[in-house]
C-alpha cells in the first residue's frame, strides 16, 4: 500500500502540501492515519510550474530514501512552487518480497509524455497476469518501460489507450483510457481465475487535467488476513477552493468553490472537516486551465 496526492490550482509552495500540515505526505511515512502500515520504500513527485523550461512536462523527483528523512526533498519543497502536482509515497510489504529501486517509484512517466500516474493498491497475483497484459501495451510504450510492477503496467496500459501519449489531454480522455485499462485488467483477471480484492486507486494527470479513481476489483474478496490495506475500501479524499495554505492556524483550502482541487489518499490534516470522499467505484475528473471544471463519475467496469 502507498499514500499519494494530486493538486491542481493556484501556485502553492511544495512544502505546504508534502511537509508542513500535521498529516502531510512525509508524515505518512510512519504515521498514516488511515493505513496501518509503514511507507518506507521511497518517494516520487511530478510537479508543474509555468516558469520551468518545457513547462508542459513535469519536473520529476524520485528517491528511494525514506521520505521523512530525505533532506534533498525537504530542500526542494521549501523552494519550489507548483501549480500542479502528483506525489507518491511508496509502501511495500516488510517481508523483503518487493524490489526497491528508483525505476519502481511513482509517479510513472515516459519520455515525451506529460501524463503521469501514481497508484495506491496492488493487483493480486500480478505475476500470473503480466504475460497476458503485454499484448495490450503499444510497442513503443512497452519499449520505454523501465519497471515491471503492477503500477508500471497500469501506467503503460493507460498510455496505450490514449490517442497520443504526448497529449493534449482532457480529464474525459484520461478517464476513458483508465476505464479501458481497467476493462482489460478485468478480462485478464477473469481469464486467469483471479478474484482476490485488488485496489487501483490512481491519480493520473498531465498537469492541466487530473483524474483520481477510487476503485477495487472484487472488493472484499479476501481469503484471509492480513487484508490488503485493511478491510475498509481504500479511501480517496478531496477538497476544493480558490487557494490552499495556512489560514486561521489551519492548513486548508479557502475561497469557497474556487477552481483549485486537492485530492489525496487521506486528508493532509487530522481534522477532516473540510474534506469529502471520492465515492467507492468512482472517479473525480478535474480540468484546469482556462475553463476549469470538476465532476464525479462512476466507473463502469
Amino acid at each position: 500500500m502507498c499514500r499519494m496526492l494530486g493538486y491542481i490550482g493556484a501556485p502553492v509552495l511544495l512544502e505546504h502540501l508534502v511537509v508542513r500540515p500535521d498529516n502531510a505526505l512525509l508524515n505518512q511515512t510512519t504515521d498514516a492515519q488511515l493505513l496501518a502500515m509503514l511507507n518506507l520504500a521511497g518517494f516520487g513527485l511530478a510537479a508543474w510550474n509555468d516558469d520551468l523550461h518545457d513547462a508542459h512536462l513535469p519536473l520529476t523527483f524520485h528517491s528511494t530514501n525514506v521520505a521523512v528523512f530525505d533532506a534533498n526533498l525537504r530542500a526542494l519543497a521549501a523552494r519550489l512552487k507548483v501549480r500542479s502536482l502528483v506525489a507518491h509515497l511508496r509502501g511495500v510489504p516488510l517481508d523483503g518480497s518487493a524490489t526497491i529501486n528508483q525505476q519502481s517509484l511513482h509517479p510513472f512517466q515516459l519520455p515525451g509524455s506529460p501524463l503521469v500516474l501514481a497508484h495506491n493498491g496492488d493487483l493480486a497475483e500480478f505475476g500470473r497476469m503480466r504475460t497476458a497484459l503485454w499484448p495490450h501495451i503499444k510497442p513503443d510504450i512497452a519499449k520505454a518501460m523501465t519497471a515491471l510492477t503492477d503500477s508500471a503496467f497500469l501506467h503503460a496500459l493507460v498510455l496505450s489507450n490514449v490517442d497520443d501519449p504526448a497529449g493534449p489531454f482532457t480529464a474525459e480522455s484520461i478517464f476513458r483510457a483508465i476505464t479501458a485499462a481497467f476493462n482489460t485488467i478485468r478480462r485478464v483477471r477473469a481469464d486467469h481465475g483471479i478474484s482476490r480484492s485488488s485496489s487501483v486507486n490512481l491519480v493520473v494527470s498531465d498537469g492541466r487535467a487530473l483524474v483520481a479513481t477510487r476503485f477495487t476489483f472484487d472488493f472484499g474478496r479476501f481469503e484471509k488476513p492480513p487484508f490488503q490495506g485493511g478491510i475498509e475500501f481504500l479511501s480517496q479524499w478531496f477538497t476544493i477552493g480558490e487557494r490552499y495554505g495556512l489560514a486561521d492556524g489551519e492548513w486548508k483550502m479557502t475561497g469557497g468553490h474556487g477552481a483549485g482541487t486537492l485530492v489525496a489518499s487521506e486528508p493532509l490534516t487530522r481534522d477532516v472537516s473540510t474534506w469529502v470522499e471520492v465515492p467507492e467505484y468512482g472517479a473525480l475528473l478535474v480540468d484546469g486551465g482556462d475553463a476549469p471544471s470538476r465532476r464525479i463519475v462512476m466507473i463502469d467496469c
Binding site: D218, F219, G220, R221, I231, E232, F233, E280
Partner: peptide, 24 residues
C-alpha cells in the same frame, strides 16, 4: 454482517450511498 465481498446502498436513480465490506 458482511463476511466476504461487499454490499451497497443505492437510491432508485443509482446514487451510491454506502458500500460495506468485510466485517461491516
Amino acid at each position: 454482517i458482511v463476511l466476504r465481498g461487499a454490499v451497497q446502498w443505492q437510491t432508485a436513480d443509482a446514487l451510491q450511498l454506502l458500500v460495506h465490506g468485510p466485517g461491516a
